[in-house]
Design a protein around this nucleic acid. Structure first.
Length: 305
RNA sequence: GGACGGGUGGCCGAGCGGUUAAUGGCAACAGGCUGUAAACCUGUCGCUCCUUGGAGCUACGGAGGUUCGAAUCCUCCCCCGUCCA
């Protein structure tokens, strides 16, 4: 179950889980964090209708998490669910996590913080130097990654340095794809003219319903405002509001804007996703729900037969 | 009524005689992504036409003027801000 934020993935996933004896596996890079509830539109426990939701609230805000880790944990989770004879249903908007899980990542080294720190110092001293370095180690990758995209240049270089091989060659060894499952990918794609106002409303609602208090609470627990999940829209602006850098009005405004940008990026991502069955509407619309049920029933029949 | 400051493309904001369809930034639109991905990055962005590259048209509050040439200088007018009455 893919689609941009606010398209109704959680709702629809719940319906599918109820209908087809399923359990839900979160595929959202922020809902994995504890305490980040309101701004991530986490489905409250009371609304989960007794359906188990996995990979939600599995980390503290200061814990680093990566797509690779996600893929490993998610695979285990899916396996357990199937072993129980139930249907695993993935739901979430983080396309990269979904791809890491389904298609896999290449078999490469995990991030190496000390190395990255050194590279970062080098880049700070001489901007562009990392990309030039990458060009020497692995010209194809350097051509593929824009020089300004420092994080990606860094990762490519990290791999080259650690494995003594060009990334472009390692990629050719293939990906560690998920096997043993047939998948049905449903994608929600409402009109953007309809999505945007919904996102704006939802975002304003979050601020009116305790988002800022939630942020204060997380900080009060001792977590640094520098933690990764605080970089996300809604949370970032709440922090700025608390610090007096933004008025509440502006905080809401910027959070709304960033959310719209994000939705657009998700759409761009999911459009490339292979074999995705598009449902052109919101997950809470009757026609979308019934066609989702239909597609799923069809798919399950085929898989069994 | 007087003295300054200012009016620039959807917005903010540079430019202050030619190399300017006009630096930047934002928004908008499109795209990319193999381990921090709600992150990070890229492209387009006045209009019309043809093939890269161009061609034409319309643009810097309004109207005139100076000049080979003006968003840039001058005059008048209209708005806006601050100060003095």
């Amino acid at each position: 179950m893919a689609g941009p934020t606010g398209s109704g993935k959680s709702d629809l996933a719940l319906l599918l889980a109820q209908t087809f004896n399923g359990e839900i596996v979160n595929c959202d890079s922020l809902q994995v964090y504890r305490h980040f509830d309101i701004g991530t539109a986490k489905l409250p426990l009371a609304e989960r209708c007794g359906i188990p939701h996995h990979l939600i609230d599995i980390l503290d805000p200061d814990q680093l998490f990566t797509a690779g880790q996600y893929a490993r944990v998610a695979r285990d989770t899916i396996q357990e669910i199937s072993a129980r004879g139930r249907l695993p249903i993935l739901a979430g908007g983080t396309g990269f996590y979904l791809r890491a899980l389904l298609e896999g990542l290449f078999d490469g080294p995990v991030r190496d913080q000390p190395l990255r720190d050194r590279l970062s110092v080098r880049e700070a001293r001489r901007p562009g130097s990392l990309h030039r370095l990458l060009r020497r180690f692995d010209a194809p990758s350097a051509a593929r990654i824009h020089a300004n995209d420092v994080p990606k240049v860094t990762r490519a270089l990290e791999i080259c340095l650690l494995t003594r091989q060009p990334v472009s060659r390692l990629f050719q060894t293939g990906r560690d794809a998920l096997t043993g499952y047939r998948t049905l990918k449903l994608g929600l794609m409402p009109d953007r003219e309809l999505l945007n106002p919904r996102l704006d409303t939802r975002c304003a609602w979050m601020f009116e319903n305790g988002l800022v208090e939630e942020v204060r609470g997380i900080v009060a627990l001792g977590f640094s405002p520098g933690c990764k999940p605080f970089e996300s829209h809604g949370y970032k602006q709440s922090l700025q509001f608390i610090a007096g850098e933004l008025s509440l009005k502006d905080a809401v405004f910027y959070a709304q804007r960033n959310t719209r940008h994000y939705a657009k990026r998700q759409i761009t991502w999911f459009r490339r996703e292979s074999e995705l069955v598009w449902l052109k509407g919101f997950g809470d619309a009757d026609d979308i729900r019934s066609s989702a049920l239909e597609r799923t029933a069809e798919f399950l029949e085929l898989s069994q037969g």
